[in-house]
Design a protein around this nucleic acid. Structure first.
Length: 467
RNA sequence: GGCGGCGUAGCCAAGUGGUAAGGCGCGGGCCUGCAAAGCCCUGAUCACCGGUUCGAAUCCGGUCGCCGCCUCCA
């Protein structure tokens, strides 16, 4: 059996994975800020985390997985100026801020379900952990890591000699002493807000809390430190997120957690997924390509076909999204489903049978830092090999699907309410064929095709499916 | 400007020292009354130049092109 190796951003290397607790692996995944729809680019982090979790389960570990929902404190500008995204979204939509959070959280979770992302063991949200965040800030203050300005309480990065190690930031060469844009009272550009005071003029905030420093709200990074500690304890095994979080969000999270709780390192393995690019350019708010899972469905792309698409590239590689690429993926996905249906019809077999090394190769692929493209190649080869019978293949395919998550055991070709009518026509056509009346037979087939019904004749009779 | 990454067949995409996985598409074949589905066959020397090596897509140097982060972002 192969060893599980994962790429750790801390060391910039693949490392053999060893859980802190011999059986239970603890994972924290940075979740979304729920001020808007999540687009398909936003789905990759959770697909990635899902594949990580499934791979751990496949290796026999138990997993405790936490995903947070950030519903306060994420500013539109840099971490310390600009407006709270949630407050802004509420004002623009005319909804109550709590409704905004609820709405987009629900949509987000529905999309994850469509993509067959296993639900985490714990969902948590920032506004449910305000006391924990305040307590962390209090401890940091007590230890001398903070200072106060007119607009908030800041973390003083110069007090942390290890600051920025994750991103290999060299503070001394980082514009130190330079004038800080926007927030003039910051001592260093890398200093960041732990607590922000509510504005004294203008519209009142909908979300604000009492604290030892006055009424206000928490900074964007502190919620992850508080919630990961609360739900997993420190240290824990794996923290996941997007590459964009390496230099700021996660660096700051480490600074807060390690200095508050004196646990170093607070996380053993940091894993970061790359972006999906849209016709060569990153999908983002400003550059477009903002399809949602729902948009894909409108285009005729099934959610699981999109999942299959994501399996086609390694998580640490930027993946090119184009309409063409996703359609290609859907074609392949549907072909695999058809194989699954045929194999399933042959009955259940024994997955423990020799299986020609396919299981080992599949396992080795996913254990090599989640190389799903490689694993998929093994899947195709297995499906098409003449060396295995259909029942063995079906057993293996179901086994592999524990990681792939394509729901192959439940897959089916969609049938509708007009079955009876179709059956009658098919019978008539088969009578015509038996009488060599091919003109009539083809006429019926064409007629059904117009309705989106495709016929497939085989030695076992005629089957139909939707186009 | 600083930091990081990428450039593999028409398209998507693995492979990071031993003579290029896989998928989609194209073309050909088998099967079929004809189709469809399925199966089989079929394509690249890895941006370019130089170097290290018995041997490089894989290591080093340079050139060109592209992308990301440093500012909202997974």
């Amino acid at each position: 059996m192969s060893e599980l190796c994962l790429y750790n951003t801390l060391s910039r290397k693949k490392e053999r994975f060893e859980p802190l607790d011999s059986e239970l692996v603890r994972i924290y995944s940075c979740g979304p800020t729920v001020y808007s729809y999540q687009h398909i680019g936003n789905m990759r982090p959770y697909l990635f985390a899902d594949l990580l979790k499934r791979t751990l389960l496949y290796n026999g570990y138990r997993v405790r997985h936490v995903i947070n929902v950030t519903d306060v404190g994420h500013l539109t500008d840099d971490a310390d100026s600009g407006e709270d995204k949630m407050e802004l979204a509420a004002r623009e939509s005319g909804m109550d801020i709590w409704q905004v959070a609820e709405k987009y959280t629900a949509l987000y979770k529905a999309d994850l379900e469509k993509l067959r992302v296993l639900p985490p063991d714990v969902w948590c949200k920032a506004t449910d952990h305000i006391p924990q965040q305040i307590e962390m800030i209090r401890v940091l203050e007590e230890k001398g890591f903070t200072y106060s300005t007119d607009d908030g309480i800041y973390f003083d990065v110069s007090k942390d000699p290890g600051y920025g190690r994750l991103a290999r930031i060299d503070l001394s060469s980082l514009r130190a002493g330079e004038r800080i844009d926007g927030v003039s009272q910051k001592r260093h550009s890398a200093d960041f807000a732990l607590w922000k005071f509510s504005p004294t003029e203008g519209a009142a905030r909908q979300m604000e809390w009492q604290s030892p420093w006055g009424v206000g709200f928490p900074g964007w990074h502190i919620e992850c430190s508080a919630m990961s500690q609360a739900h997993l304890g420190l240290p824990f095994d794996i923290h996941t997120g997007g590459v964009d979080h390496v230099p700021v969000h996660h660096v700051n999270e480490i600074a807060q957690s390690e200095n508050c709780f004196d646990v170093r390192p607070c996380v053993r393995t940091w894993m970061h997924e790359e972006f999906i690019t849209f016709e060569g350019v990153k999908i983002s708010k400003s550059t477009g390509g903002l399809y949602t899972v729902g948009d894909l469905e409108q285009m005729g792309i099934e959610p699981l076909a999109f999942r299959f698409f994501l399996l086609g590239a390694h998580y640490r590689q930027q993946q090119m999204f184009t309409d063409n690429a996703v359609v290609q993926a859907q074609t392949a996905y549907r072909r695999l489903v058809r194989h699954a249906l045929d194999l399933r019809a042959s009955g259940d077999g024994n997955a423990a049978a020799p299986a020609g090394g396919f299981r080992d190769r599949f396992h080795a692929a996913i254990n090599d830092d989640l190389n799903l493209p490689q694993a998929l190649a093994v899947v195709w080869e297995m499906v098409r090999t003449p060396d295995l019978g259909p029942r063995e293949k079906w057993a293996l395919l179901r086994d592999f699907d524990r990681v792939l998550g394509l729901d192959l055991a439940e897959a089916r070709i969609e049938r509708g309410e007009i079955d009876a009518e179709i059956e009658v026509l098919i019978e008539e056509r088969n009578r015509a064929r038996a009488n060599s009346d091919f003109a009539r037979a083809d006429e019926i087939r064409d007629q059904l095709e117009v309705q989106g019904i495709l016929l497939e004749d085989s030695s076992r009779g005629t089957r139909w499916r939707r186009a």
